[in-house]
Design a protein around this nucleic acid. Structure first.
Lengths: 226, 226
DNA sequence: CGCCGTTTTTGAACATGTTCAAGAAAGGAA
DNA sequence: TTCCTTTCTTGAACATGTTCAAAAACGGCG
């Protein structure tokens, strides 16, 4: 059962070639300027063949996001393995994302373009992208687990997703941020992550259990994600 | 200087015909299913002529949004002229929007699709749509002005835009809401508007002035809109 | 009216995402 | 090997947003 490229199913290899071509071209010319014909040609297949493997140009983006996410996780490792302070870890992960995705700001905008369409399979809240989303949320699980904070069980259960949602808010701001090196977004992340950490500490106070319960229930009831 | 249709500049009339055709077709078939050729034909002009007046299909949407907004304002009048309770007024306006735009939920999704693109002229945060945005914000000015609440000056200045932002959040939720008659969004609006009103009261407390100042400053610093 | 610059209109052409019928290749069963 | 089914591949065609050069209509001016 060897996994040699030569042995891998032919289809698999063709598919990989198409993704690779798309990634290079997306990076080089951006999404809009990259045509499916360019992708097909670079991959050495016919136009129709590209569509045999990818139902639309849009789904080719998923490969790009996956790659960005992997890079983000890798870039997050440094902070996550060097500090156990919640604020450092949270802010570090947010900054890592900016660092990694900075050159591809316009792609992030596309992500939100899709996010707005309830029927798009790329919508991060959509069922079809559950896997991708859960992987992203997992990163925030790690952020919390490795931090020296005690959060009550009920909150702990929801916290990763809450932080992910918060981070999506940062991304949304970042998309519109025209400042040099995304300086404004970095500032926003620093400010708000501080507040978020304080809120978590506050919410963990046993005295606030009833209020916390009510708020968490509300959030659960109106959760957007499947 | 009579404004007879017959006397209005020829260009104006053609332009109006195109908009009218677009509105009817958008309503009937939706945005995607309406082609520029259909619009042109219905308007009785050539395809190229439609593009002479409207740079793209997208900008034709603006006319649609304008119409929806006007309908929303009209539908809001009832509550606004019958109650001076802040909560009733705020929730009433939110509900009016749901009532009015319910049949066009998919259009709202398009709005956010554009909102995600920082360069789109339809982006509600964009400079180009400042007029539209300010008109929408104005509605919330009325909501506050007619309510029997005293808010400190510094907060009062920002409040309309804050409420507008909040209402955009409700819209974002609504886009993904598949429940019958948008029931979930209505519930969300009821819950959150209550909280919002309480927060406004709380924030107006003179004792909280320093905190309020800090938060408002933060908001001003990181305002997304122009 | 006849001329000229501007505005409006047209129809054809183009670019590109997507579909599809038909053929080629691959992989087994007999 | 031969035949059949499934998988893969192709190239042409289609739909539609958009552009553009040229023609037509318009509006004043002499």
């Amino acid at each position: 059962m060897q996994q040699d490229a030569a042995k891998t199913g032919k289809g698999e290899r063709t598919k990989a070639r198409i993704v690779d071509a798309a990634l290079v071209l997306f990076r080089e010319h951006g999404y809009d300027a990259t045509t499916m014909r360019m992708v097909a040609e670079r991959a050495g297949v016919s136009l129709g063949n590209a569509y045999y493997y990818f139902k639309s140009k849009e789904v080719l983006l998923q490969a790009f996001y996956k790659e960005m996410h992997d890079a983000h996780v890798a870039a997050s490792q440094e902070v996550l393995s060097s500090s156990n302070k919640l604020h450092d870890r949270l802010l570090g992960v947010l900054q890592a994302r900016i660092d990694v995705t900075e050159p591809y700001r316009r792609f992030a905008a596309l992500l939100f373009r899709q996010a707005a369409d309830p029927d798009s399979p790329l919508n991060p809240f959509h069922e079809a992208s559950r896997a991708t989303r859960e992987e992203a949320i997992q990163l925030f699980e790690v952020v919390i687990e490795g931090a020296n904070v005690k959060v009550p069980k009920d909150l702990a259960k929801e916290l990763p997703e809450l932080l992910w949602t918060y981070s999506m808010g940062i991304v949304l701001f970042w998309i519109h941020d025209r400042s040099e090196d995304s300086a404004r977004t970095r500032k926003l992340a620093a400010h708000t992550s501080d507040i978020v950490v304080k809120l978590i500490r506050l919410a963990s106070n046993p005295l606030l259990r009833p209020l916390r319960k009510r708020v968490l229930e509300l959030l659960r009831d109106f959760r957007v994600t499947g």
